[in-house]
Amino acid sequence: MLEGNIAGPLALIGYGLAAIGPGVGIGILAGNAVQAMARQPEAAGMVRTTMFLGIAFTEALALIGFVLFFIAGG
């Protein structure tokens, strides 16, 4: 069987899990934003701003995970 042990803070795994959701979310968001820009290039500026805003909200979860990693992992 596999010998050895896994070391390191559990918080790392927590952060990894926290990053999954936002990762998927940002992917979907950016993909749809690209589609929207391709369909209506004249609205690209508005779409881009809204995209960044959406990314900012989506990213919040990952960022909270990041902070918790520092607090719990220290």
Binding site: A56, E59, A60, L63, I64, F66, V67
Partner: peptide
């Protein structure tokens, strides 16, 4: 959330 994420995003 807004100020927290604003700061932490850049920091992270």
């Amino acid at each position: 959330i807004r100020p927290l994420t604003l700061a932490v995003r850049l920091f992270a």
